[in-house]
Simulated assay, not measured.
Amino acid sequence: MDAIEPGYICRRCERGLARWDAQLNCPNCSVTVPVADGIPRFPVPDAVDDSAHETFFDRLAPVYETPVWFQPLYRFVGGATAPRDDRSTIASMLGLEAESGTESAAEGDTEAPSVLDVACGTGRITRHVARDAASVLGVDISGGMLERAQRYAAREGLKNVAFARMSADELWVDDGAFDRVACCWALHLFPDVDAALAELHRVLRSSGRLVGTTIVDEYVLGAAPVRAVARLTVGAEPFDVDSFRTRLRKAGFSSLEFDRRGAALFFRAQAG
């Protein structure tokens, strides 16, 4: 697939990275980033910074979008009131669906926005929003998820998407680089939530929009045994709604909107 080329920057000296053969290079401080199968592999936490290490999510990638994983888990967590298709809800909250055109125009968005999809997994959100976005960059720490994401995007013929391995708490893109940021079904998995939220705020343009989904300690996750299973199986730590609101504000977000469905929390916020 002849995909877009995002403007990556060096997080050591803030200079732009240039592609040369099978790597990205910083012309200033000699930082190099390998590119394998078209996917830049930026530094990630030590726990997954090993090409021979098969993480849980690498193993999950082949079945993530099949009927045995995401939808059953989503229905269990979200309950009967959760939107049937979370992707359409997220796209609408981002201001990308057709029915959101009036809202976007009212906010001064006359052109299709650029979107960063953090913890994109197999790209199920990335691909869905790409049809109404100028460009979408999907990032994740799981190489297996990203390889699957790139394969699915190529199969659908998407030309305005790219994928890179990056950690949410160190995004190798410039300040204010994106109009929108999505972070779905992942914040409860991050080891440093506050650092990740600060990064999501940094890469958004002024008045840019963050949209996401996470899980909270309500509904089925209000039960301690269920929370324990979530913690032991995938390392999930459900949020308390009020403390999550405080964390978003501390990171610099305002105009917070929450919509809880079961233990699933859909949220939207604006960068200051």
Rank of each mutant, 00 (worst) to 15 (best):
T122R: 10
V115R: 08
D194A: 15
R180V: 09
V115P: 10
D194N: 14
T110Y: 12
C120D: 07
A168H: 08
E170V: 10
D175Q: 14
V193P: 01
L116G: 02
V136F: 00
D140E: 04
R180A: 12
A149Y: 02
A182Q: 11
D175N: 14
D192F: 05
G138M: 06
C183F: 14
A162V: 06
Q150M: 09
E170A: 13
G138E: 07
A177T: 07
A177D: 13
R151T: 12
R151Q: 13
D109H: 10
L137G: 03
G123R: 01
A162S: 13
A177E: 15
D192W: 04
W185F: 15
F163I: 02
S167W: 08
V181T: 08
E147N: 11
D174N: 06
R155F: 11
A134G: 08
M166Y: 06
A149V: 04
D179H: 10
W172R: 14
S135T: 14
R131P: 03
I125W: 01
V193N: 02
V129R: 11
D132H: 12
M166G: 06
A162W: 05
A149D: 03
T126S: 14
L137H: 01
S114T: 15
S114R: 14
Y152G: 01
G144D: 07
G123H: 00
P113N: 08
A177K: 08
A133T: 08
R180L: 15
A119P: 03
R127I: 05
R127S: 04
D174E: 15
N160Q: 01
A164R: 10
C184D: 06
R155Y: 10
A134L: 09
R131Y: 05
H128G: 00
K159S: 14
A153R: 00
P113R: 08
A119C: 12
A112E: 09
D179I: 01
D179C: 02
Y152N: 07
V139N: 05
G157M: 05
D179E: 14
A186N: 12
E156H: 08
R180Y: 15
D140I: 02
A134P: 00
S114D: 15
V136I: 00
P113L: 06
D109W: 13
G123Q: 00
A186V: 14
A164N: 11
E170Y: 02
A119R: 03
L137M: 02
H188K: 12
F190L: 15
A195P: 07
R165L: 01
A130W: 00
E111L: 14
I141F: 06
D117S: 07
Q150V: 04
Q150D: 09
V173L: 15
H188R: 13
Y152R: 10
S135G: 09
S167P: 10
A153G: 00
R151W: 09
